[in-house]
Design a protein around this nucleic acid. Structure first.
Lengths: 202, 202
DNA sequence: AAATGATTTGATTGATCGTTCAATCAAGCC
DNA sequence: GGCTTGATTGAACGATCAATCAAATCATTT
């Protein structure tokens, strides 16, 4: 099997697509970073687009190991887990001087008319992320209002993260990220207080 | 003067960049749509990047006339104006089967290492948009809590719009936009009720 | 060791890209 | 009528791109 060649290509492409985007990354860029030659790449992948698909599959299948587990290590409270995950994105922004944010979001807006397969993979990545948040919200149980639509709020958390990353990157100022996350935190505090009033009615 | 040639190029480039993005739009695309020849384009603009700058300047200078005025025609209530503006983006999504969203947001995430001039123009567009929202929030006066940070909330409205557009486009489902905007609406309702309690203390 | 198929090599292809430029044209001024 | 200036034309250029392919090499089996 050529599993090693494939792995090297996917890992390099992951980095390059996050750094420069899909279109600005040439196949030659991937080759030079991996010491793999073009014939080998095209032996493993039908084309550049299939490398992108493999990258998106890697993100999709690796979310638990590479994103959630590190972000949640030592954190049990489900609400704190949500903000710990957002903190992981903050770290990405901070360590890159606000140039990387969410690689999936960047690709989602860069590719205007993606093949259905690519679009489905982008959606699957968003879906996994949203479901991870929703599991936290479900775990929060009665700390959140009973009538609260957990799925909606999970989608909203993704929305805020992506919008906050976009502004921080554009302004090259992490303050935009922090202020938006603080707004979301305020909203969570309100919801939690509302649920408290539910449990101990006046 | 070559003002007409320039105007034709900028308008065509506006459409094309919104449809296909900056990198996927070739100079030849702009030429064929405008019946302008390459020499003329390069007589008016030093290069493709300067066309992008002109497009971003057009968005920046035209926000009042082309975005705010149409969205706010016949709407006086400042809070309703905010959601009317979001409604304009909904219409863009709906009429394009969720392929166009916010052209500025798309460009902001597509261009990973833009020239400082381009980055400043992207930021200026976000800034104008945020300030328009902030003026609405200021106009709402005592209907919103006195302690509320209007600037932060305005940034948050942009965040939610961009994140909602991203998901609607990725899933090709306007429901994602609607649900996120509904979440924002709920938050506004909460703020307004909080301000009411402020004015009529228990 | 021979055979076979999988994998790698790297030069090469053809298409497309942004850009250039000599030429032509139109309009106003002396 | 010449002269100047600015705009337009469209063929051409070099660079870069994704992709190809025949030959070489490696790994496995017989």
């Amino acid at each position: 099997m050529n599993a090693d060649t494939r792995r090297k290509i996917v890992m390099a492409a992951m980095d390059l697509f996050a750094e420069k985007g899909f279109q600005s990354t040439s196949v030659a860029d991937i080759l030079s970073r991996t010491q793999v030659h073009s014939g080998s790449l095209y032996h493993v992948f039908p084309g550049k687009q299939d490398v992108l698909a493999a990258v998106l599959e890697a993100y999709r299948d690796g979310i638990e190991e590479w994103l959630l587990a590190p972000a949640w290590s030592g954190i049990d409270d489900p609400v704190e887990r949500i903000f710990a995950l957002l903190g992981a994105y903050r770290t990405m922004l901070a360590t890159s001087e606000c140039t990387y944010g969410c690689p999936i979001g960047s690709l989602a807006l860069e590719l205007h008319e993606p093949d259905p397969a690519i679009r489905d993979l982008l959606a699957a990545n968003f879906e996994n992320w949203t479901l991870a948040i929703q599991r936290c919200l479900d775990s929060a149980g009665a700390r959140l209002p009973a009538a609260l639509d957990r799925r909606r709020l999970a989608e909203f958390v993704l929305t805020v993260m992506e919008g906050a990353v976009m502004q921080a990157r554009t302004y090259r100022d992490i303050g935009y990220f922090d202020r938006n996350i603080a707004m979301l935190r305020d909203q969570f505090d309100l919801l939690i207080r509302e649920a408290q009033r539910e449990r101990v009615p006046a």
